[in-house]
Amino acid sequence: MLRPIRPEDGEAHVAFFNALDPEDVRYRMFVGIRALQPSQLARFTQIDYDREMAFIATRLNGDGVAETLGVARVVADPDNIQAEFSVIVRSDLKGLGLGQVLMTKLITYCRRHGTQEIIGEALPHNVRILHLVRKLGFDVKPLERNGTMWLHLDLRPGLRR
């Protein structure tokens, strides 16, 4: 099931984070983090719905407990012109299409809310995200200032792909 994240998803979000490979965490956060701090957990699960959205893919495990499988989030500037995205899928589920499903949901959400551009950055060797965003119509260019890749999707009417 895809749905917006809620504060009560905190415990499942910690379990999700703990199931990620260290490399996947570094690809998402650009640094190695071994555990979520309480302030980070609050920031990830208690969002400002006026300026941001986070969709989670969740399912019930064998014990009937909800588990988080992936997260896509976007944070818009105050004028809703540009929104920065991120997406991460549980390491053991990569390559099955869940990232594309989450990103498609996020793009649809941004279009419906009048966001003009979706942007992001990725490490150049994160080939999965680079492939995914290209497939979804993003422009991808290297940023010389820090060696990352600039990801950009223009959502303005008339410029849709």
Rank of each mutant, 00 (worst) to 15 (best):
Y109S: 12
Q100G: 10
A72E: 04
L123D: 01
T115L: 15
L123V: 06
G64M: 01
G62A: 06
R43G: 05
G158R: 03
L130E: 05
L153Q: 02
P78C: 08
F17G: 04
D92F: 13
E23Q: 15
G147L: 03
E8P: 00
A42T: 15
H125N: 15
N126S: 11
G137F: 02
D92K: 13
L96R: 08
A72M: 11
P78A: 13
S91A: 15
K105D: 11
D139C: 02
G147Y: 02
K141S: 09
D92N: 13
F30T: 08
A42P: 14
Q82K: 06
G95D: 13
I33E: 15
L151N: 01
R34M: 04
F85L: 12
I119K: 15
P22E: 14
R28A: 12
L36N: 12
V71N: 07
G120L: 09
I129H: 03
E121N: 10
T108Q: 12
L69Y: 01
V127A: 14
L155F: 09
R145G: 03
A72S: 13
F138K: 04
V89E: 07
V71C: 14
D24G: 05
R73L: 07
Q100I: 02
R156V: 02
D139G: 03
I33G: 00
T58H: 10
H113L: 08
L102R: 07
